[in-house]
Amino acid sequence: MLYSEKVMDHFKNPRNVGVIENADGIGEVGNAKCGDIMRIYLKIDNEIISDVKFETFGCGSAIASSSMATEMIKGKPLKDALELTNKAVAEALDGLPAHKMHCSVLAEEAIKNAILDYYKKNGIPYDHSQFPDCDSCQHCN
C-alpha cells in the first residue's frame, strides 16, 4: 500500500476539520496550482492553543498531515507548537512516501504561519528565524 494505516485513518477520519469563527490566528500555505492548500485556524488562550481547526485542499497525505499536526498541537503552549517539525508529523503518521514529505512540510508551515498571524495581530514581538521564509520554497517552481 502507498500509505500506512495511520495515514489512512487520519485521511478517512480527519480530526479537527472545520473553521474557527473569529480565530486568533489563521495560517495558509500552498496554492491551487500546485494541488495543495492548507489553512489552519487557532484559538489561543493565555499562550495556549485551546482549539485548532483545519481546511485542506489536497491529496490523502495532505489531509492526514493536517489532521495529525492539529492533534499534536491542540492544548499545547505556543512555544511547543512552534517546535513542531514536519519530521515529527511524518513520524507520528508512521511515515510518508518520499514524494509526499512536502505534505508534512505544509502542515508545519501552516501552523507557524497561523502563530505568526496571531503575533502580528496582537503586536507581540517574535523571532523571525522561527518562521518559514516562503520565498525560499521551490515546491511549485
Partner: peptide, 30 residues
C-alpha cells in the same frame, strides 16, 4: 472544482470503486 483527485480516488476506492485521476499526486510529478 475545489477538490484534488488523489483524495477523491482514495475515498472512491474505500467505497469499492476503482478509478483514476490526472492530478499531480497520482501522476508522481508536480
Amino acid at each position: 472544482e475545489g477538490i484534488e483527485g488523489e483524495s477523491l480516488l482514495l475515498l472512491l476506492d474505500d467505497a469499492g470503486i476503482s478509478a483514476s485521476s490526472g492530478s499531480a499526486c497520482t501522476s508522481g510529478s508536480l
